[in-house]
Design a protein around this nucleic acid. Sequence first.
DNA 1: TATTGTTATACTCTATAACTATA
DNA 2: TATAGTTATAGAGTATAACAATA
Lengths: 148, 148
Amino acid sequence: MASMATAASSTEAAREAWALFFELGLANRARLVEALEEVGLTFPQAHALKLLDPDRPLPMSEIAERLVCDASNVTGIADRLEARGLVERRAGDDRRVKALALTAKGAEIRNHVIESMRRPPAAIAALPAEEQRALRDILRHALELAPG
Amino acid sequence: MASMATAASSTEAAREAWALFFELGLANRARLVEALEEVGLTFPQAHALKLLDPDRPLPMSEIAERLVCDASNVTGIADRLEARGLVERRAGDDRRVKALALTAKGAEIRNHVIESMRRPPAAIAALPAEEQRALRDILRHALELAPG
DNA sequence: TATTGTTATACTCTATAACTATA
DNA sequence: TATAGTTATAGAGTATAACAATA
């Protein structure tokens, strides 16, 4: 009985926690999109840019995989980033492959993007230090337990 | 000195916590979109549906506000939901206003949508009960401290 | 033959601006 | 005049299918 009650309670806590997580995430999507608009990027464009380490070009196929979208979309996203001079296409050894490489300007904008994404919302920033650390530790643990 | 170190550490913990939060949220966007595809809904459609309490129709203007989008978009979203028989437009006292009301079928799909959104990801479900409760309590506290 | 990226097509979301009907 | 919703338009993301170049 006790273990059943505990199990039920545990599941319910997970659902409540997730509902709150969802609420906080949703409220902050608008904030992020607004920050990205300041540098003239959409979310998929910013996401792609974030994937590009300054000294490690990435095949377009891999970008599609990380963006969880069809490869045909990456063509358009890359076109728009390239038109703004943020990335350039480079042929690989296998000449079917094209890798996207950051330009200097792209690396600059990328830093801005990463900063926008990493800046915690007021709700998290307002927590006492102890709870911030507890939150960090729990989320780290969660991601260790399951890859998503 | 001690307080400076604490303050710096606190900010860093918040940033780390948020980065992990972001990662978990991003990984679960795909999962949700996939679940919504099973009932043939896009995210904005599902979001709108979720706002509609079965016995409380909502003016389209309020839906636009909650979806953080221009009112003109709600016309199209409502069109598509209405074409599938999930909502219906109702004239208000002020006959400029149209409220969206759930149909019986819409209420059914809405329950499915809410269940999809509330189902915690493996990462959260796998946490020990104690950490699930701690996570819930911290997020609840965060949302009390700031509205988003 | 198989793979990478592109193009063509179609649909949805998005905003802005002009329009209709109410108020 | 002002407001709620619509329509027209344009741009971006999304998937599917057909295609070119390369392997």
